[in-house]
Design a protein around this nucleic acid. Structure first.
Lengths: 209, 209, 209, 209
DNA sequence: GATGAATGAGACTTCATTCAT
DNA sequence: GATGAATGAAGTCTCATTCAT
């Protein structure tokens, strides 16, 4: 999943070919699924979970409405897929940085930047996530499972105080969201200062604090 | 606005109860409005913004659907009213504690408990808020305005580093949400420890750090 | 419920007024409900339960799609209402004849004609009924309840052998359906002969056989 | 076509089992066709004509969706094939009994039992049939043709009063359906008594009455 | 002969909103 | 001020059918 396209949502288009339109065999189910997940990510980001619909997602991915339901049982299921892809990408980035960077200072700075970029690209997705976790049981379950994976990832990176890890996870997430949302800027804190605080929080933890 | 029922929704919202709402009163416009706001708060909390509808809110408040639109221009407007009432109550509580308590330590502990209780009572409302801020321009604007009021309230309480205030605001909010959601408990941190960390964050700030 | 109009189903019509169309307040909920039941009866008769849809029923009754769902929870519920109205009318007719006619011979003849007319007017409704009873639990339940009412009605009319009553019920129903369907005519039996046999079955029972 | 599973559907059809059907065979067209008819029979019985779909039928038979349409023009056509196989099996059984049994009494008893067993095994199929005959012209035509064959079969068995034959046909069918459905049991008539009446009707006819 | 990904019209249902009373 | 029947656009999901391989 890459950054969402900046295109604005188009209105409902006219019916294209009346019937027996050109049938475009697109390839493997995996490719189709991936295209749908990408389109859904962009749509959720842009318009929110309740601001798009599955027909629009399918069309954006280049498919007819019915195709969506060959790959996902319902709208919630594709949201989970989008979220899981998003999280996996974030942590793959973090793991690569940890493996590559030398000092805790360098690690913290690069992790902060990577996380920040990732959140900045998907603020709407994250906002939808919180509302859905509160409301949709299936998404709540998937989110909890994802949390456990994240905690395990932290342990793999050598951080072993579960309580501190949990606080770090939530704090980093919330600060990154706030910066991405522009909340801090509107409150009078410059992006540089905000980033500095984020780095400090991470570095503290990497140094065992 | 009082606390919502503690039942948590377990699936798609059930059809509302068939019988009419509590009473068919004719009071002042202010009373009607207040009843609608209270009913909306409970509904948003229970089912989420997109999980209720204005007819249900009106009926729960004891009114007919049309009455809703005599008092609010649309669904977003009543959400803003609910949110503003919620925030005002929280800060009235904080201000009362600050006026009443003696030491920073006592203030921090009592503020943390008050905030925690307030968040614990309304987790669904808060989740809806974030999604709506990302998606609905009217609600986003109202939220920003509310933030400015909160920053002013902090200044009134004698806290004058805007950057630190902003971080405190977001951190307290996020930790309180996480405890209220049970996120920390599921990650292995007991409620007591979580509360301790929340108190510490507040006390630090009250001591100028 | 009277006989269905013989008009043939119209194709989907163009959207009429774009928005803010003329709002036609039609009267009491009971009237609306009755209009919907009448339209549904005609539609089920014409096109079968699976051959119509709730939007078409609403439009045929002079309402918008949403109005349907203010009066019936779903399509099955209105089918039950249609069926119950149908049965009630049939038995009201039978009861009136029993009260009015003198001899078993006269009763039998007039009952047979009334039943025949009622079945002839609604063959499609009856065919849908059997399929739905096999498949839709809600409709099955309603049908069983209706059967019990019919058996009670027979007892009220002074027929007290439950086994014979049950056989009579099913036999009359089946022969009436067959005549109405034209099954017998296609098999070489004239309508007069078929009616004669039906009368005989009823008269036998009225004479205690 | 063998007997369907005795499980009765309790609600809206569940999504089919995810795994593919029994095997991916390549046999003669006749074998493929026969497998499709068998799977369709079971599906129609279980879920009703409108409660299954052709993809599910194909998969249950071990084939891909497209294969279905190599063997049947549409869904109605396979229903006709299922029905014709069902009827043929019933009458083959009856003919064998007539050839084998000695007295009218024995014939009647054995025919009743065979018919009863056949109806008891396929109540859902029969219910769908009636609805489709009322609604789908192609199925109506096929049903009428089948009736003529049945009348001819009766003549072959030596019964020559067309009117009486027609009545017998419908009566036996209806009583057998009612016993199979459990309608009579719910109306207070035991299965033994019901069967007795069925035997009597047949025996009467065999004795020329 | 078989595949199976894809189609797309359309059914069922919801809900924010209106307006005549 | 309140009512509440009615609206109608729109969203979720289904399924008979096709066709390129």
């Amino acid at each position: 999943m890459t950054r969402p396209p900046s295109t604005r949502r188009a209105g409902p288009a006219k019916r294209a070919t009346a019937s027996a339109g050109p049938r475009a065999v697109r390839g493997t189910p995996e490719e189709t699924r991936a295209r749908l997940v990408a389109a859904a990510g962009a749509a959720f980001e842009h318009d929110g979970y309740f601001g798009t619909d599955t027909n629009r997602i399918a069309k954006a991915a280049g498919y007819a409405p019915g195709t969506f339901y060959k790959h996902f049982a319902d709208k919630a299921e594709i949201f989970v897929a989008v979220y899981e892809a998003w999280i996996a990408r974030e942590w793959d980035g973090v793991a690569a940085i940890v493996a590559d960077a030398r000092t805790p200072t360098e690690k913290a700075a690069r992790i902060a930047d990577a996380v920040l970029e990732h959140h900045r690209a998907w603020p709407g997705l994250r906002a939808s996530l919180r509302a859905l976790v509160a409301t949709e049981p299936a998404i709540r379950r998937a989110h909890r499972a994802s949390r456990r994976i994240q905690m395990a990832r932290m342990a793999e990176l050598g951080l072993d105080d579960v309580g501190k890890n949990a606080i770090l996870l939530l704090t980093v997430e919330r600060i990154a969201d706030a910066i991405a949302d522009g909340e801090l800027r509107e409150l009078g804190m410059g992006d540089d200062e905000a980033r500095g605080r984020l780095v400090a929080v991470i570095e503290d933890r990497l140094r065992g604090r």
